[in-house]
Amino acid sequence: MINVSRVINSPRFAQEFTVYRKSGVWNAGRYSESETALSMTGVITVADPNDLEQIPEGDRQKGAISIHTSQPLQVTTQSGTSDEIEWRGNRYRAAQLFPYADYGYYKVIAVKMDPSTGVEA
């Protein structure tokens, strides 16, 4: 199999971005959430129509990006919340993960968030 992680991590293609990962604990019946900033590198492009067809809400998305990285990002599950990615001054929420680990990378479709409300734009 071809391992494309060399391309994804190459300084010619890759760029740095910040991932905000949330975690929390229950304490005395209240949920307390914290956010950790992680520095990552990868290839980020604008999501194309084929990418948007792969996520259920694709026809409603505006400002979606496609991220290719050698490290997995988290999407919403029962045990946690989606990672948020800061790129070019905007925040995006990881909406869909495609684990191509056999080829050395992960693909994530992320949707732009409204800075005033913190929800998808």
Rank of each mutant, 00 (worst) to 15 (best):
L38F: 14
K112H: 08
S70V: 00
A121W: 09
Y31C: 06
Y105K: 07
Y20S: 04
A110N: 01
Q54A: 15
M1G: 15
K107W: 00
A37H: 04
L52R: 09
A95V: 10
I109P: 01
E35G: 05
P56F: 01
W26A: 08
L52H: 05
N3Q: 10
K107N: 06
S70H: 10
T69G: 05
L38R: 12
I67H: 04
A101C: 06
S70K: 04
Y31L: 14
H68L: 15
N27H: 15
L52G: 04
L97C: 06
F13I: 01
R12D: 12
I85H: 03
E53Q: 14
E84K: 12
I8S: 04
M40E: 12
Q78F: 10
L38T: 10
R12L: 00
Y100M: 12
G29A: 05
A95T: 09
S82I: 02
Y103R: 11
E33M: 15
K107I: 01
A47K: 03
P49G: 06
Q54W: 07
P99Y: 07
T45N: 11
Q96A: 13
T18L: 09
D114K: 09
Q71N: 03
Q54M: 14
I55N: 08
G89R: 06
I44F: 05
S34F: 13
Q15N: 07
D51I: 02
F13D: 03
R21C: 04
G118Q: 09
D51E: 07
N27D: 15
N90P: 00
V25K: 15
V119M: 08
M1Q: 12
A14S: 10
D102Q: 14
V108C: 10
Q71Y: 00
T45K: 15
T18V: 11
P56D: 08
Y20K: 09
W26D: 07
Q15W: 02
I85G: 03
D102E: 13
V19K: 03
V19Y: 00
G104F: 06
T76C: 00
T76Y: 00
S23F: 11
T77G: 13
A95D: 14
D102L: 14
R21H: 13
K112D: 05
K22W: 07
W87Y: 09
R91D: 02
Q96E: 15
V46M: 11
P49V: 09
Q15H: 06
M40N: 14
T18C: 02
E84L: 00
Q15S: 13
K112F: 05
I85A: 02
V75R: 13
G104I: 05
V119T: 13
T36R: 13
D83Y: 01
G118S: 07
A28Q: 14
A95R: 15
